[in-house]
């Protein structure tokens, strides 16, 4: 009997791709489509730093060649944005004015950089490093830049600051405890980082916000809360990530910080699943909701969501705590971010 199933995955990151592969592996009949608003094919996000510094070329970023999708008969819709989901009719409304029907849907939309509301009025001055398109934007700006400011902080930003400093840039780091990602920075970790940075001649402001940022020609003037003034050529913002769920709101799929799912990664609407950085899951151990962080975990969630979509009932659990190396300091963290 021919099947008319159409499984759609929104999002072309590790969660979306592993979900697509699992679906195809277990079901060679159904249509499988990935829709992504990014124009560039599935890439290694962590290599973006190397990409903008010129160490890695564009092709090295690609996780797999286009032919792989052709062989697996996975339809790829790049550069297409889903504007609205209508679960009653199982229809997606795309920004370029196309309606697409699904029989089952996996949301793997990932997350976007967050800017704290008090700084949101300066957002237009900030550069980000979370997507390939960000990197493309930043790349030509970076080489002529001499002075760089970094706001917030996460593991990538520390690595990035080190890299910039090695590129002989003058780096100023505004280190915010609250915004550190994916965990809160303890005081001793913060001071260790400060110490480490001063060794690399990176100026650090700890928990001091800019109170004014203005563009002056191609540069930016920053006035800090404690009255210091500095001029920089480019400002990077690393204040953690927020799940990409805006377009889901109002559809009847429940969201809070992320898309609310149960331990099977099912949303409140039947036939719709969520996984990866956009999913918000309750965990009894933590007595809290959590959101996945990181590449591998997204992949595991993608697989789980796909298997459950196909009728299994696998339970997702936060993995064991893991030790991360932050600038020489051993830090215990898990792969989740408490909300």
């Amino acid at each position: 009997m021919p099947k008319f199933d159409h499984y759609i995955i929104i999002g072309n990151g590790p969660a979306g791709n592993s979900a697509a592969e699992v679906l195809r592996m277990h079901d060679d009949q159904a249509r499988v489509s990935i829709i992504s608003d990014e124009g560039f094919p599935y890439y290694y996000r962590h290599m973006l730093c190397e990409f903008i510094s010129g160490k890695k070329k564009e092709d090295a970023l690609k996780v797999k060649p286009a032919s792989d999708y052709k062989e697996k008969n996975i339809r790829m819709r790049l550069g297409q944005r889903v504007e609205r989901i209508e679960p009653e009719t199982k229809t997606l409304y795309l920004k370029h004015m196309e309606k697409v029907k699904f029989t089952r849907l996996i949301l793997a939309t990932g997350a976007s950089p967050h800017v704290v509301p008090s700084l949101s009025r300066f957002e237009k001055h900030f550069s980000f490093m979370s997507k390939y398109s960000d990197a493309l934007k930043v790349k030509p700006l970076l080489s002529p830049a001499r002075k760089v400011a970094i706001l917030g902080g996460d593991l990538v930003s520390l690595k990035f600051a080190k890299m910039l400093s090695a590129m002989k840039k003058e780096v100023t780091f505004f280190l915010y405890k609250d915004c550190f990602y994916p965990f809160e920075l303890t005081a001793d970790m913060a001071s260790a980082i400060e110490k480490h940075f001063s060794g690399k001649k990176i100026k650090t402001f700890a928990d001091i916000f800019p109170s004014r940022i203005e563009s002056k020609g191609k540069a930016f003037e920053i006035e800090t809360e404690n009255g210091e003034n500095l001029t920089v050529d480019i400002i990077f913002c690393f204040m953690g990530m927020r799940p990409n769920i805006n377009f889901i709101q109002g559809s009847g799929i429940d969201t809070e910080r992320g898309v609310l799912v149960d331990e099977h990664l099912k949303t409140n609407v039947s036939d719709i699943y969520a996984c990866g950085d956009c999913a918000q899951i309750y965990n009894p151990e933590l007595k809290n909701y959590w959101i996945s962080v990181g590449w591998e975990n997204a992949g595991i969630q993608g697989e789980t969501a796909a298997l459950n979509l196909l009728g299994e009932s696998k339970v997702i659990k936060p993995s064991q705590k893991k030790i991360l190396d932050v600038e020489g300091l051993k830090v215990n963290t898990s792969w989740w971010k408490e909300l």
């Binding site: 790829m76 297409q80 196309e98 309606k99 697409v100």
Partner: peptide
């Protein structure tokens, strides 16, 4: 476009994985 395309009536759904599309 002025109205929604029904599924598969939009070129966007037909592009091969390697193609680069600018909307």
């Amino acid at each position: 476009p002025p109205a929604y395309h029904e599924e598969d009536k939009s070129i966007a759904g037909w592009m091969a994985p390697g193609m680069i599309a600018y909307g």
